[in-house]
């Protein structure tokens, strides 16, 4: 099994899709000659040339709008927004244009468009370069949204996203870029919308994504020593959402903790609460707990940043809380 980093998985997925389909093009700020500010896309410009791999000006609205225009006229573009926080600079193009273009036209267009961006706290980038932005995008029917947490998922989901005839956001977590993992040779494009039960358990279900999956797994190992058996679900995709995997797990464990790297209000965790309240409330033996950033913001100073993002201790505490009831 070949080992690669999450970062390398992004680049390999892009390269493999560009080799497979000449309609795939890739552009963004400093992605071509420099290979990306996170050094995620080196070599693509050299292999595929300046026609298909382009550096853009610092123009997020034009990047997203041009990607949309190209997508509805015969290409399959991948656009990079660098830091995910920059989605707010081009929210009109994302929300009013990309997400609605097919619908408003009565289905005249498909929008085979992938937008990549790096999100997440923990690297000392400060308040405007550290947010997780999923929840802002989940209010937009028309968009799909994937949040890979391992190199294999990153590779497969990015390839799957590029092959989608719908606009897909692929959010990459900055702190995972250096993570190494197996990406089997036969890994192909993955279907979007399938959660992964990363660890099986019987007492409490944790639902999480990206960095929080890894911290939840650490918490689960710790809790095992205390006799608490934790099941950890990596959602991998937030839109569409794999409801069955969540409900099946809650039916088994009867207890649910949701771990999000995001503010509490209108976070995607609220959707999971709603789902279980609606379709699984009689299975519950304890209140649902959400572990998240509360209403705090990501700060620059290391102890402040370390505190705002859910850590293993806070996750374990929430699990103990529901397990005791």
């Amino acid at each position: 099994m070949p080992q690669m980093t999450y970062r390398e998985a992004v680049c390999k997925a892009l390269a493999d899709e560009m080799r497979t389909d000449e309609q795939v093009i890739f552009f963004g700020e400093d992605v071509a000659v420099a290979g990306g500010v996170f050094k995620v896309t080196p070599g693509l410009y050299e292999e595929f040339g300046s026609n298909r791999v382009r550096d853009t000006p610092i123009s997020e609205q034009a990047i997203v709008g041009a990607a949309l225009g190209a997508a509805i006229t015969g290409l399959r573009p991948v656009a990079e927004l660098m830091f995910a926080d920059f989605v707010f600079v081009c929210m009109d193009q994302i929300v009013n244009q990309v997400a609605k273009y097919r619908y408003m036209s009565g289905g005249q267009f498909t929008v085979p468009l992938t937008i990549r961006a790096a999100q997440g706290a923990g690297a000392g980038f400060g308040t405007q370069h550290s947010q997780c932005v999923e929840s802002f995008l989940m209010g937009c029917p028309g968009l799909k949204l994937v949040v890979p947490s391992t190199p294999a998922d990153m590779y497969g989901l990015l390839r799957g996203a590029i092959r989608e005839d719908n606009p897909v956001f692929v959010l990459e977590h900055k702190l995972l870029y250096n993570m190494t993992g197996d990406v089997p040779d036969d890994t192909g494009p993955m279907k979007l919308g399938e959660a992964h039960v990363v660890r099986e358990g019987n007492d409490v279900t944790i639902v999480s994504t990206q960095l929080m999956v890894h911290r939840s797994l650490e918490a689960a190992t710790e809790l095992e020593k205390e006799g608490i058996s934790v099941e950890v679900i990596d959602l991998r995709s937030l839109a569409p959402l794999d409801k069955d995997t969540i409900l099946d797990s809650v039916a088994k464990t009867n207890r649910l903790v949701i771990v999000e790297e995001a503010p509490h209000s209108a976070g995607w965790g609220g959707d999971i609460v709603s789902l279980v309240a609606d379709e699984g409330i009689y299975w519950l033996d304890a209140p649902i707990k959400r572990v998240n950033m509360g209403q705090a913001l990501v700060a620059y100073s290391p102890p402040l940043e370390d505190t705002v993002v859910p850590n293993v201790g806070r996750i374990a505490e929430a699990v103990r809380n529901v397990a005791q009831r």
Partner: peptide, 8 residues
């Protein structure tokens, strides 16, 4: 920008 994309 959408027209720019169509031209692209």
């Amino acid at each position: 920008p959408i027209a720019v994309g169509a031209a692209l």
